[in-house]
Design a protein around this nucleic acid. Structure first.
Lengths: 156, 156
DNA sequence: CGCTTGCCTGGAGTGCACTCCAACTCTCTA
DNA sequence: TAGAGAGTTGGAGTGCACTCCAGGCAAGCG
């Protein structure tokens, strides 16, 4: 649940920073380390409702607040959200993401468990890719069948 | 929503039969062209509830019944279900699958539209695969980071 | 013939992941 | 300093895809 993107990425959560390469899909507004929920919503594609909900269920640590109680997201928060977004895109259940977030909160002694969790998920993603590929073949076949059928009926 | 698998596959629904190559994941009980809902459930991995529900919402055409009102699924029905299963695995919304089923029911003049629908879905699947692959890279990176961090801490 | 097991129906219930509401409060710009 | 507009909360509501229930009927076996 940490940075894995942009120049300022971090290593495993709680560990020292490590270099990282993935480009951020939409660029951050500006590197000022303080973003409103609206800006974050814009950047991540998640609704403000969802961002607040993520915090409530413990998927995000408590975000810094202004004097008046408004959220100020940091660059680090954006990094976390990017990672959460990746997991979400791959269909990881929210409960599992929350579990991961808990492990992060518990500190460095949970490295092994976090790694296991991610490894299991990676296997999951791999088999999903394989699944999608076989379906792609089926779709190609079907689409070609329709093309053939249409060509044949035009010829008559 | 027709056969696209096993030796007895069909072409686009409503068209003449076409050869097909994909192997059926779990073999059919026996090629007797008459299966109970329980057997079909076993074979497809869908619950009997779900099979009935699919029929109710129009995702499957009405399945043949016995004198006493019990469903007898044909091999053709199994083929349809296999295709539905493929679409489902790739995350096509049930509403879209129902739309496709309607087009099939309407006859051959909907070939073009069916093809479009499948093409759009194919694009969808392709981009999902790409998405999953980039996430896989992120996961690899994270997992490696944990491995590094653990090795480092053991060394101390 | 009776019994167990499987299947039938319509409708209600579940779990997940949001999504929206009401009734405020805060911040920024003019 | 006033007003617009973005943000706050807890809790209720939504949509999707099942999933289950109650109460009854059917089929195959001994």
């Amino acid at each position: 649940m940490t940075a894995v993107q942009a120049g300022n990425g971090h290593g495993p959560d709680g560990a020292t920073a490590l270099p990282c390469t993935q480009p951020r899909p939409r660029p951050r507004p500006a590197d000022r380390d303080r973003y409103t929920i609206g800006e974050v919503s814009e950047h991540t594609g998640l609704s403000a409702h969802t961002l607040r909900w993520y915090e409530r269920i413990g998927l995000m640590p408590h975000v810094d607040r202004s004097h008046g109680g408004r959220r100020h997201y940091s660059d680090r928060d954006l990094d976390r959200l990017d990672f959460v977004g990746k997991l979400r895109l791959t269909g990881m259940p929210v409960a599992d993401m929350v579990r991961y977030a808990e492990l992060v909160r518990e500190g460095e002694h949970t490295f092994a468990e976090r790694q296991d969790l991610l490894r299991a998920h990676r296997e999951n993603v791999r088999s999903r890719i394989a699944e999608l590929r076989t379906t792609l073949a089926v779709l190609d076949f079907k689409i070609d069948s329709y093309a053939d059928a249409r060509r044949a009926s035009e010829r008559n």
